[in-house]
Computed example of a mutant assay.
Amino acid sequence: MPLNYPTPSLPRRMACWLYEGMLLFGVVFIAGYLFGTLSQTKNAMDNRHALQAFLFVVFGIYFVWLWSKGQTLAMKTWHIRVLDLSGRPLTQGRALLRYLWSWLWFMPPLGVSWVFALTGGEAFVIIMGWVAIWAILSRFHPRQQFWHDALAGTQLVDVSPPKP
């Protein structure tokens, strides 16, 4: 039974989402450098699928570790916390489940792009369109939560400091 914590507004959650994406550039840079160095990859297209799998694991470690502590850096900035439905911090298992379900932000449009062999610009439009649809679908959740949170048994809550 979910406790009644306030849900952050959709614009605030999406701003946090965008900020998280910017911060992930640093994670990708360091992980890509480490992968390239350890695998002695000279061309970016060599070992592409191995790099993608490596980044999937690195992102998983990053998010599971920080979500099990309650917040990523972007979430701290936007005063958003992730909890289970009882209001407790996530276990690592629950955080992993949330990580896997969160790929619903990207896997459907990436699958469509792959099946129809879409180019970069076309794929970008499909991905951004799906992201907008996925975000708007949260309006149909009883507590305005994202659907991957509902599937994972988690919730984003507003932890803004009280206003004077």
Rank of each mutant, 00 (worst) to 15 (best):
L100Y: 05
V115E: 10
Q52N: 13
F63N: 13
R48E: 08
W101P: 08
P89G: 01
V115Q: 13
W78N: 02
R94K: 14
R81Y: 01
G87T: 07
W65L: 14
H79M: 05
L85H: 05
Q71F: 08
V82E: 06
V115H: 03
L97A: 12
I127G: 03
A95N: 14
G121L: 05
L118E: 06
R81S: 07
L104Q: 07
D84M: 05
V131P: 03
V64D: 03
L83R: 07
I61M: 15
D84G: 02
G129E: 05
T72Q: 05
G70Q: 13
A132M: 12
L100E: 07
D84K: 02
W103A: 08
T77H: 12
L55Q: 07
H49P: 00
W103Q: 09
A53Q: 04
H79T: 10
L55M: 13
T91D: 10
G60R: 06
V58Y: 09
V64H: 05
A123I: 06
G70L: 10
P109H: 01
I127Y: 13
V125C: 05
A74S: 15
G121Y: 15
L85D: 02
V58W: 04
S102I: 02
L73W: 11
R88G: 06
I133M: 15
I80F: 04
A123T: 08
V115M: 11
V112C: 07
I133Q: 09
A50Y: 12
F116M: 12
G70P: 14
A117E: 09
L51W: 10
L73P: 02
S102R: 00
G60C: 09
I126D: 04
W101T: 12
W114D: 09
F54L: 05
R88T: 13
G129T: 06
G87I: 06
F116T: 00
Q52V: 07
L66F: 15
W130R: 04
I127C: 14
P89I: 00
G111N: 02
G121H: 06
A117Y: 00
V115C: 04
S86Q: 15
P108Y: 01
W130Y: 14
W130N: 08
V131I: 15
A123C: 11
P109Y: 07
V125Q: 09
V115N: 04
F116L: 10
A123D: 07
F116K: 03
G129Q: 07
W114P: 00
P89Y: 00
L118R: 03
P109R: 01
K69R: 15
T72G: 08
G87L: 04
A50W: 13
I133Y: 13
T91G: 15
